[in-house]
Design a protein around this nucleic acid. Sequence first.
DNA 1: CTATGTAAACAAC
DNA 2: GTTGTTTACATAG
Length: 788
Amino acid sequence: MRTSPHRPLILKRRKLPLPDGNASYTPARDEPDGQGKGAPKHEHCSGDKPRDKVECGTQKFPTGIKIINHPSMPNTQVVVIPPNADIQSIIAALTAKGKECGNNGPNKFILISSGGASRPSDPSAAPQQLQSEDERSTATKQDGAADRQAELCVCFPAGSGEATGSGLDNSLTNIQWLGKMSSDGLGSCAVKQEMEKENQTPVHPEEDSVAATAVSSTSSSWQDSISERPPYSYMAMIQFAINSTEKKRMTLKDIYTWIEDHFPYFKHVAKPGWKNSIRHNLSLHDMFVRETSANGKISFWTIHPDANRYLTLDQVAFPIPEHHPISTGGGSQNRMLADPFSSLPGRKMKPLLPRVSSYLVPIQFPVSQPLVLQSSLNIPQPMAQGAPLSSSETTRSSKRVRIAPKVSVSASLDFVGPVSLLSTGFSCSPSLLLRWEEEPSPFLPVGPVKEESHCEEGPSPFPPTQSVKKNDSQPGEASTSFPSALGIKQENEDSYPDEWLSPFPTALSIKEEPVPSEGEPSLFLPIPCVKQKKHFTLLKSPLRGVSDTVIIKRREMGRSRRKQHLVLPCSEEPVLVLPESIGSDSFRLISDLPSLQETHSLGNMVQLNCSQEEGGPFKTPVKDMFCRLPVSSTPSKVPTATPPQGGPDPWRLTPITKESNEMDFSPVRIPQVPFTSLQENLDLLAFNSTPLKNLFDSPRQLLQTESNDMVSGPLTSSPASNPESIKQPSPEQEGQRLSESQSLMEGLVLDTMNNSLSKILLDISFSGLEDDVLGTDMSFSQFIPELR
DNA sequence: CTATGTAAACAAC
DNA sequence: GTTGTTTACATAG
């Protein structure tokens, strides 16, 4: 994203990094198209900050903490933290170091847990990591300014110490990064970066650079080995396959082929039933949307933009631990990782994706501004464009910020408060690592969050009406735009049929409900979101309503897993969501309209969501419609009743223009507000909080129920603490603030991949107090309390 | 309970 | 036979 100079990143690591994780959402790289606007950003590249680097050499602290200069990054030091180290010691060490170095000293610190790991076995890996780190840091810095601010990136092993430390990737969000970490922890490291050749990902050079680093090319053992089943779930593999193409769409057959090509196991060893499983997954998961070629003869499978993390194999590639202990077992965590690979002989199936209990969740909070995020790489442009996210997602993308799962939401919220506090407190922007305990479902697609974009297809975010058709084929992209719309859908519980949106008035007669004005806070409820855990359904296929069709899928949670599609045009939603109040800017941000939904940015997002949910105008209606309609995905089945469904058409969305700006890739939304002073920040916070709060109130409950765990106590608490203030805001004020809040909210993004993986990135920026970056005294504990 | 994997029944081509 | 959708069941966490 943009820049945010100040934003610190918070990473949370879940237990295991999954390869698949969605994380990948990094995607940017994939995106070929580029439409993007996006740019991604910043990232990389460049710049680095040359600044003076001071260097202080390597030092070791009593606690075992080591601080060494980053090999390639100027002003950056790598802090190796022993598993047992406590935050205070870390802080103390950093502080000491900071003092030692003085202002000119390094302003970035990458914290790595040494947990066990050590370095990667892979020689190559190490360097890569470093690079990545560099990039990452660079990115960070690039953002901006940042001159002085110090940034800390902390990676802790979440649970165990496994962590490893490997480097951080440029983008914290990058899955690879996670993988590396994990791998390191595991021991091996090779990150596999497979390349992607496969992915055709067109990589943009730039991105490449970023990504590239990661990628080197190693082949993974499992990849190579025919006998080993890849550690990825079918869902992940399908994503890899689809994302490997520029258009992000692929026919079933091509998917089979891609998988066979990349994972010989399926070609030579797996039972033929694997194809059935692929089909099953395609039909089952809402994130996979089937598009029909113009002539209706060819079906392409795409990934709902909202849900697409643009993962590519290379991104996730993870080293195989062959040798590893992991496989067997190391800690549970390790196991997890291992699992995938490992394969358990006995089992029927091996879980491809490990379920991780915890993933790394980077959270970006934009308190301040700009930031950086990740990014780079992969972020899919689409996202940037506005691809809708669906499921899970969250994250990431630029545009949409979705918070994925409720959890995320809550988390974000929680964070907000605290974060801000921190920020105020600190001069630097440190990064904290938070552990999110579990997220419910990481994945987006399914995820916890329900956000749905209603119209996914609705390419036109803005134009409400627009229908979708996309001319081209790129559905995905189009869809991306969609994000805005995304609403959260609740599937389960509520059955209000309405959930979905019905964007399209036209085609379907879905009911549109008036959307509640945004103003109404109450409505917004995130709650549903929260609740919903997982399923978010997206719309899937297009229906043809008229010319365009969009299909929405609905999934019912409870019952079957099947997903349904509806078609929707998405048009309207956007309107609803945004309140006038919102400033233009904010508007934009949010705007993604379509993204609105997506953006769950905090406050705003919430509202949006709520509205959606609530009003459900979008969703609900849609849903209802669907429900009523036989929308079942399968054409064959219900067809009759249903309205035109499936049309082969083009429901493709038009490509959105993307909001370009807004989008950042960063999952988190950047706050637009620039940061000025602490006070401001505080104000912001206040704002934020308020909005959030509003949003949350109800949601909160939800969150609490479901996601409490996520947030660390303090964090959560903090927000809570503010409640009063928050609530206070009159509607009016809210309106004004909404934008702000939105921006803040936006900052939060959640990523999840496969359900299993999720990351949340928060950017927090601290205002500038530079003084001590390290802050001399600051201790988290201190902060925390304050926060609270 | 959820996520994932498998198998299979069906339907439409 | 292929492609898709669903349902049902199993397993692991």
